[in-house]
């Protein structure tokens, strides 16, 4: 019963399938070497590359749970990376500033998203589209349209260094996800978020400050995206404004969907999201190691989206239950059902 209800099970199954496939077809996929006190291997590589996805997807989970969506995460990553790179090349700031300032400035952009959505009631998809389009322009403006290359010992710690043999980025991502999960689950905030995703108006009448919670969800996402941007910038030792985080919004949304969070909002599962991010990255890595053109991943992602939508769709469930239970079939034809639903909706029953 417990397993049947668990939403994470699908992501877990998908991940196991991909790993099983690799166990059989890819030689040395599971081998982990220790060199210079660091772990090396495909699995570590997957974790390392999944770290930015885990971070942004964790924030995205909260946003989607409130019934929203944040398309601007990719651009926010580019902006935070660009700010850090500009700071490094233009002055001698203490290392801590290189992390704090980009995160705070990017968080302000999250406030902007939240204000448009929470307080003005603009559709999330559209409101964040503004920053998605202009954000990358702002990042390019900051770096002058070039790839700003830098060397900075302290800053690179986040993206390149290892802690206890594991990449620091992975630990940061997982810690962040864990902290957010603990925070929303051990306080009432998680419940508030789910209630807003279920019915925003009803939540307001119950006394939940839906506007502020929506704003905070977007701020948290912006902070997560900022950290992800710093990781990627530190990793390549350069701010590549036109490519960092490109397409990240799609990966993040996909991770959330695979993780069992319904895209219409409501219940959310951060654990599932982390698994979802790992599914996406291991899929990409598998395709890479197979020697198939990496572009195939996009087709795979498309099929995964359709599959997940099928699993989440209420209509599909009904069609199937009608198919297997012919007595139900006689009740309503699709058109009749549509009319029935619309009547209820119009009458507000």
């Amino acid at each position: 019963m417990n397993i049947k209800q668990s939403k994470e099970i699908w992501a877990f199954l998908a991940l196991s399938l991909i790993l099983l496939f690799n166990l059989i077809f890819t030689q040395g996929f599971f081998s982990i070497e220790i060199r210079d006190g660091r772990f090396y291997g495909s699995l570590i590589d997957i974790l390392n590359r999944a770290a930015p996805i885990i971070l942004t997807a964790t924030g995205m989970t909260l946003v989607i749970a409130t019934g929203g969506i944040d398309l601007s995460v990719g651009s926010l990553m580019a902006i935070s990376g660009a700010i850090a790179a500009v700071m490094i090349s233009n002055g001698d700031f203490p290392t801590i500033f290189l992390f704090v300032v980009p995160i705070i400035l990017t968080a302000l952009l999250g406030v902007w998203n939240g204000l448009l959505i929470g307080f003005r009631g603009i559709q999330p998809f559209i409101a964040t589209l503004i920053l998605m389009v202009s954000g990358r322009g702002i990042a390019q403006l900051l770096t002058g349209g070039q790839i700003l290359i830098f060397e900075h010992q302290g800053f690179e710690l986040l993206g390149r260094s290892y802690f206890l043999g594991f990449p620091v980025a992975v630990s940061v991502a997982l810690l962040m996800a864990l902290a957010i999960n603990l925070f929303v689950r051990k306080t009432a905030i998680g419940l508030f978020i789910e209630s807003i995703g279920g019915n925003s108006t009803a939540s307001r009448y119950v006394g939940i400050n839906d506007k502020m919670i929506k704003v905070s969800a977007y701020v948290v996402t912006a902070i997560c995206a900022a950290i992800a941007g710093l990781i990627m910038t530190g990793n390549i030792r350069g701010a590549d404004s036109s490519h960092i985080g490109l397409g990240m919004e799609l990966d993040a949304i996909l991770s959330v969907a695979i993780g069992g969070t319904v895209l219409e909002g409501g219940r959310f599962h951060i654990g599932g999201t982390i698994l979802g991010a790992l599914v996406i990255q291991s899929l990409t890595t598998t395709i890479l190691t197979l020697g198939v053109p990496v572009e195939i991943t996009q087709i795979m992602k498309a099929l995964v989206v359709v599959l997940v939508s099928f699993l989440q769709s209420e209509n599909v469930k009904e069609i199937f239950s009608q198919y297997f239970n012919p007595r139900k079939k006689a009740l309503l034809t699709p058109i009749e059902k549509q009319i029935d639903d619309s009547t209820k909706e119009v009458l507000n029953v």
Binding site: L250, A257, E295, I299, V306, S309, I319
Partner: peptide, 24 residues
């Protein structure tokens, strides 16, 4: 229409699919 997919999600899948097919 038939399965009640969100247009945003469904056409996002279309975006991935067509771009991938173009590379193929």
């Amino acid at each position: 229409d038939r399965f009640g997919f969100a247009p945003f999600i469904c056409t996002l899948a279309g975006l991935f699919f067509l771009r991938g097919s173009a590379y193929v």
